Simulated scan of single mutants.
Amino acid sequence: MDISQTPPSKWRQYAKRIVEHKAFTPIIIAFILFNAVIVGLETYPNLYDGNENVFFTLDRVLLWIFTVEIALRLAGTHPVSSFFKNGWNWFDFVIVLAGHIFVGGHFVTVLRILRVLRVLRAVTVIPSLRRLVDALMRTIPAMGNIMVLMFLVFYIFAVIGTILYADISPEYFGSLQATMITLFQVVTLESWAEEVMRPVLAIDPWAWFYFVAFILVGTFVIFNLFIGVIVNNVEKANEADQDNEEDGADPLIPDTNTKELQQLREEVSELKEMLRSMQHNDKT
């Protein structure tokens, strides 16, 4: 018999009711935010030094709270294997499990980094953040093509800049590597005019053409391609969510009862046919 067709036990149903309670998610979010505050306070030496035991105890308590949360979610999922079909559930499980594994004194730095990563669990709890991250993940294939185009633009302008301005400004254009870093500063529009362009412009009056051309291509074209791809995928994700909401499904939460509902509908339709046939036989 298929395990997914067997009804869940009473304690699994109880765990599911706890997880689906309207106060469960806000409480977990509150603990995640509290964990973020604790991690931030650890960066202040005047607060952390001398209070290591207090911070360690709070971290242990929070870790066990998150462990109980994962256990309840596992217990409330039927069958349990469907819990691991969702990548976000894997992320939660690995983060919490790693907190127990790297608890030794030799992994203090790793453990403190994991405490910071635990804050990312807010993404898995808040549906709107999950949708945004999923939309960003969909942009990765398109981002690859844009990155290649961006590298070509940077490389061409870096070679030209090194040839033209290596003698004028060796600090910024003395080598291909230095020019690439300079162009990255220029494309972010961070202090590029006063520090980079004007010293070169004072010696070469035509240097403005090089910088303006690179800013037009690098900033206003390439960066807008990034923004356009991201916005397009976010809109697609929102449209998909709206379609799934109309169908009564959440694209980010695995629907473990879809097969069961379909089988129940088939059984109900078969029962209706049997009743109709029985009524027809009675009449005849």
Rank of each mutant, 00 (worst) to 15 (best):
D2E: 09
Q5Y: 15
Q13L: 15
L33V: 14
N35V: 02
V37F: 01
E42H: 09
E52I: 12
V54M: 15
T57R: 10
D59Y: 07
L63I: 14
L63P: 06
I65T: 06
I65E: 00
I65G: 03
T67C: 14
V68T: 14
A71V: 15
V80I: 14
S81T: 10
S82N: 05
N86L: 15
N89Q: 10
F93M: 10
V94W: 01
I95G: 06
L97I: 13
H100P: 14
V103W: 08
G104N: 03
R112Q: 08
I113S: 10
L117T: 08
R130D: 03
R138L: 06
G144N: 07
V148E: 02
M150C: 15
M150I: 00
L152M: 13
V159Y: 05
I160C: 00
S169T: 07
G174I: 05
Q185M: 12
M197K: 07
M197R: 05
P199Y: 10
D204A: 03
Y210P: 07
I215A: 10
F220T: 00
V231G: 02
K236R: 14
K236D: 12
N244D: 13
D247Y: 06
G248P: 08
L252S: 13
T256Y: 07
T258Y: 00
L264H: 01
S269L: 12
K272I: 15
L275H: 09
M278P: 04
